[in-house]
Amino acid sequence: MAPTQRFTLLVEVQLRAGISDPQGATIERALPGIGLDGVSRVRAGKAFRFELSADDEAAALLLGTQVAERVLANPVIEDATVTVTGPAVAG
């Protein structure tokens, strides 16, 4: 029987620690130029939101993790964090 519940997920993809991040470094260098001082350790990444069907939250997390690890992130250079943020938006 097909799962009937719909969930909303958030996947954040970040470059792994130790992998250079030219985008983050460039943003960090630009900030003092407009008077925004003291910002450090800037890392650029990507965020993905989507909905999926699953029997329960644990199953939603499992399926979302597969989406993240097989498609959204390149495990050679990136880590993914998967969060079930709640039920799907109605409509």
Partner: peptide, 17 residues
């Protein structure tokens, strides 16, 4: 080829963007 796993490693944005 790297994304497909036929070659190791990955290609990132150029240093200096």
């Amino acid at each position: 080829l790297t994304e497909a796993g036929l070659l190791p490693g990955a290609l990132q944005k150029n240093r200096g963007l």
